Computed example of a mutant assay.
Amino acid sequence: MSEVLACIDGSTTAAAVCDYAVWASQRLQAPLSLLHVLDKTQYPQRSDLSGIIGLGTREHLLEELASVDQQHSKRALDQSHQILEAAQARAIQAGTDTPLMRQRHGSLVESLVAFEDSIRLLVIGRHGATNDTVSEHVGSQLEGVTRTVQRPTLITCGDFLAPQNYLFAYDGSFTARKALQMVASSPLLQGLHCHLLMVGSDSATCHTLLDEAAEVLKTSASEVTLVWREADVEPSIRAYQLQQKVDLLVMGAYGHSRIRQFLLGSTTTQLIASSICPLLILR
């Protein structure tokens, strides 16, 4: 796991994805790669229509259809290359070394699984090119990515803003403690103010767990603010984000509490959709 991989498409979110990927690459001192995936719907393949139109009697029509398919494919490839070149130029202008451009055919999930072993951090936009203007709507492939790719994933929304603070949604579970260790040992969030939030009904237990977690973070965070809420997870997180103007939401992907039920249940996309800032999901 050595590189920051940014998923670039033709949507308006591509600029923010590129900017966050550059920021992460510089913080992690890791190389940056830009990936654009050509879905099959973007470059129609030639079909065998001989049985329908009668091979031989309408051979010229077959040739015409093949030519149209080739033109569609070429346009899609040219557009893909232009998208990657624009992202590469933006990244270079932001001060990073020349990123590697990668172009793949097929599905986004399959492409990311193929690169999974080399990914240190995946950066992807919340909206895709097919639902670019839909407010608080998750890209059609994003949920599949977050459930399949077993690498830390940074999901962007809105314009780029270099994070100065982050909200860590903590539940005290074994996997949440592992995620906390990842944050504490990684240069990605080093020196930022951490808001450590826990949702639960037992305040005494919550405060004990929060104090223990704060000890883990004290060497990496510039400041740790402990927060306990008894209400539901999603409204609590959203309200705190708004109140404190949080720049980044951080969550472990697995746990054993109400946060786990919320994140892994059918409302996974609700959390991603409702967040007013980028979301970092840790595996």
Rank of each mutant, 00 (worst) to 15 (best):
S11R: 02
T12Y: 01
A14V: 00
A16T: 14
V17A: 02
V17M: 00
Y20E: 01
A21Q: 12
P31Y: 05
H36V: 02
V37Y: 09
V37I: 07
L38F: 00
L38P: 00
D39S: 15
D39I: 01
K40T: 01
T41S: 11
Y43Q: 11
Q45C: 11
Q45N: 08
Q45Y: 03
R46I: 11
R46G: 12
L49A: 07
L49M: 09
G51A: 15
T57R: 06
T57W: 10
T57H: 08
R58V: 12
E59P: 00
H60P: 00
A66D: 14
S67I: 00
V68H: 15
D69T: 06
Q71V: 07
K74R: 12
L77S: 13
S80T: 13
S80Q: 06
H81V: 10
H81D: 14
A86T: 02
A87D: 00
Q88Y: 06
A91Q: 04
I92D: 00
T96L: 02
D97Q: 11
T98E: 14
T98R: 08
L100E: 13
R104N: 07
R104E: 15
G106I: 10
G106P: 06
S107Q: 11
L108H: 09
L108W: 00
V109F: 05
E110Y: 03
V113S: 12
F115N: 05
D117S: 15
S118R: 13
I119F: 10
I124G: 11
I124Y: 08
I124D: 07
I124C: 05
G125C: 07
R126E: 06
A129N: 00
T130F: 03
N131W: 11
D132G: 04
T133R: 12
T133S: 12
S135R: 09
S135E: 15
S135M: 01
V138Q: 03
V138P: 04
